[in-house]
Design a protein around this nucleic acid. Structure first.
Lengths: 223, 223
DNA sequence: TAGATTGTTAATCGATTAACAATC
DNA sequence: TAGATTGTTAATCGATTAACAATC
C-alpha cells in the first residue's frame, strides 16, 4: 500500500463548496459502497464517474475540494475513500432522527431500511391524532405531538423528517426549531421558513414527477 | 383585464433551458396554486420570489425562457401563469402512472394524495411477491410483475415509480423500457441505466438526509 | 522504464445578478 | 401623470472541462 505524508490537511472551507458537489459526493459514496461490497479495492476517477454519468475530471475536482485522497497511477483506495467521504458528509457517526406525521408516508419512512445503513437512527415518531398515540410501528412508539420538544431534547434528536399535511408543516417546523433541531427534511408540498441556523431540504414527490413530464413533453431530440 | 397580442410565440427550445430553471418552475407553480386558492389575483416577480428565497430577476428570467407572461406595472395574473406553467411542465393533462414494488414505500406512494392534485393518476401497481398479487390497496389491484409489459401497453402508462429493492431495480427498469415507458422515478438506492429516450430521476431518501448532515457538520457561519 | 492516473491550472462554458428602457 | 413592474441586455459570478506536469 502506498504511503502519504500529509493528507486531509486542507481547511474545509465549507462556504466555497458548491451544493452540486455535495450531492454528487453522496452518489460517489453510494457507488463506492456497492464496489466495496463487491470486493473491489481501487477505482479510478474515470471508472467511478462513468458509472454515474460524470467525467473523470469532475470526480477528481469534486474530491479535491476536501483533500488528496487518490494515488497517481493507481486511483482511489475504495475503503479509504468511503471513510473519507463519510467523514465529509458527517455520516461517520449515528444521527438520531424524528419522524413527524405518521400517515402513509411517515409509516413508510419509519420502515425504510436504507436509513440505518447510512447512519441514521429513527428514534421517535409523533402524530397529532390522539388515536395514533401509543401505537407501536416498526418498533417505535408514536407519541403525541405536544411531547415533541421534551423528547427531542431528551433523546438529543438532531434531524426531523416532516410528513404532515401541508397546512400543518410550518407550525410543526417552528416547534422543531424551538426544540433545538439542526435540520429538517420536509415532505409536505409547501415551502417552510426556517431560521438560517437550521438546514432545510424539501422533497416534493409530485414535483419529482413534474421534472420527468417536462423532459418527456419537451423531449430533447439530441442527447 | 389588460390585453396582449402575441404571447407564447417563442419556440420552446427545450435544449437551452437549464435544469435548475425547470425545478424552480415547479416551485413557482406550487406557490401560485396556493395563492390562487387564497383568492389572490396578481403577483409580482419580487413577491413570488421572496416567498421561495429567489430574487425578482431570477423569477422573471426563468419565466422569460418560455414567453411573455407578465404585465409591466402590474405583475403576473395568477390564473394565467398557473395555466402557462402547467402547460410548460406538461401537467395540463393527466398522466397514467405505474408503481412497481409494493413494500412500505410503494404503499405510501399508492396512497399519496398529492399526485392526483398535480395531474398524476396511479392506475397500476406491481409486485414480484405472489402473495401480494390480487391485493387491493387504495383501490388499486396489485398485479404480478410478469404482467407489467401487457398492462403498461394496454393502459397507455407513461411513467413508472420504482420502489423495489436495490438489486431488482435495473431489471425492472429494463422491463419498463421494453414496455415503452417514457420516464422513471427511481426510489431504489442504486444508479440505473436507461436509454437516452427515457427520462430518469433518482430519489434516494438517505441521500436527502446526507445533504442535511453535511450542512450541519460544516455549518456555514454566514448565511 | 512505460503506462496509468492523480491534483491543479487555465480556458471555456453557463447561470445569476444588476440595471434600465419600455410599458401599463 | 407618477409609481410599479416587466422583459432584456450587459456585467458578474460560478462551475465544468481540457490539458498537463507530477507521481506512482
Amino acid at each position: 500500500m502506498p504511503h502519504r505524508k500529509s493528507k486531509n490537511a486542507e481547511p474545509l472551507d465549507a462556504g466555497s463548496v458548491p451544493k452540486a458537489v455535495v450531492s454528487r459526493l453522496s452518489l460517489y459514496l453510494r457507488e463506492l459502497q456497492h464496489l466495496l461490497r463487491d470486493g473491489k479495492e481501487t477505482i479510478s476517477s474515470g471508472a467511478l464517474g462513468s458509472r454515474l454519468g460524470f467525467s473523470d475530471a469532475q470526480v477528481r475536482k469534486d474530491l479535491a475540494y476536501f483533500g488528496h485522497f487518490g494515488y497517481p497511477g493507481i486511483g482511489y483506495r475504495i475503503d479509504e475513500l468511503v471513510a473519507a467521504v463519510k467523514k465529509i458528509l458527517g455520516t461517520d457517526r449515528v444521527w438520531p432522527v424524528a419522524i413527524i406525521g405518521i400517515g402513509n408516508l411517515g409509516r413508510a419512512l419509519l420502515g425504510y431500511k436504507g436509513f440505518s445503513r447510512q447512519g441514521f437512527d429513527i428514534v421517535a415518531a409523533f402524530d397529532s391524532d390522539p388515536s395514533k398515540s401509543g401505537l407501536i410501528i416498526e418498533g417505535i412508539q408514536v407519541r403525541p405531538i405536544d411531547t415533541l420538544a421534551a423528547v427531542v431534547r431528551e433523546q438529543r434528536i438532531r434531524l426531523g423528517m416532516l410528513a404532515v399535511p401541508a397546512p400543518a408543516a410550518q407550525g410543526v417546523a417552528d416547534q422543531l426549531v424551538l426544540a433545538g433541531i439542526d435540520g429538517i427534511v420536509n415532505f409536505a408540498p409547501v415551502t417552510i421558513n426556517l431560521p438560517p441556523h437550521v438546514s432545510r431540504l424539501g422533497v416534493d414527490l409530485a414535483i419529482e414527477l413534474e421534472q420527468i413530464t417536462y423532459d418527456v413533453v419537451n423531449r430533447l431530440r439530441v442527447r
